[in-house]
């Protein structure tokens, strides 16, 4: 990958990676940090990364950074402060989207990532498996469980009322 290819990757995939991270974390500043770290890692290893696989490489790096960040955040126990921080919280404009966004929050990092990778980026089971280091069957099963969980959250009596 050349410098030009790297810059083209920034142009093409920065928004997508940021969306994936910010939907997971629901924190813009942390999402920016993870995105920058992901692209910095791509720049460092640009000689060993093919241009066609730049997107999957970015999401792989971003996912692992996300997992690391989430685990670190759990130890610090700042999840609730992020939700209440109006300046950094991800803002939902519509009710349905807000409910669904809240439903995503009920998933674990892996399930949430699988849903985001599947719905936002359209990765196949195999590609998601390469990113998350899971097998194809694992991806399918985890994803199905996530959707059923989301459906159950949406049709729960609390949400209906």
């Amino acid at each position: 990958m050349t410098e030009k290819d790297y810059n083209e990757s920034v142009l093409l995939y920065a928004d997508n990676v940021y969306r994936f991270i910010v939907k997971n974390l629901r924190h813009t500043e942390d999402a920016e940090d993870i995105v920058q770290s992901a692209f910095e890692k791509l720049w460092i290893h640009k000689d060993s990364v093919e241009t066609q696989k730049a997107k999957s490489y970015l999401f792989t790096v971003a996912y692992h950074l996300l997992i690391d960040h989430t685990r670190k955040a759990k130890r610090i126990s700042l999840q609730e402060s992020f939700e209440n921080d109006t300046q950094t919280a991800y803002q939902e404009n519509k009710a349905l989207k807000k409910v669904l966004h809240d439903a995503l929050a009920t998933l674990n990092e892996t399930q949430r990532s699988l849903v985001l990778l599947k719905d936002y980026e359209g990765y196949s089971y195999e590609e998601i498996g390469e990113i998350t280091k899971l097998t194809t069957d694992q991806v399918r099963v985890y994803l199905h469980r996530a959707r059923l969980k989301l459906r159950n959250y949406l049709i729960s009596p609390q949400q209906v009322l």
């Binding site: 810059n7 928004d15 813009t28 692209f39 989207k97 669904l100 439903a103 949406l154």
Partner: peptide
Amino acid sequence: ESLQSTKLDIETVTCPNKAVLYKNIF
């Protein structure tokens, strides 16, 4: 139909400060 409601709609999100990501501006 209930399972289809769990599918996320594609949202357009812009990465802030994208300029800092470029190396050696074009």
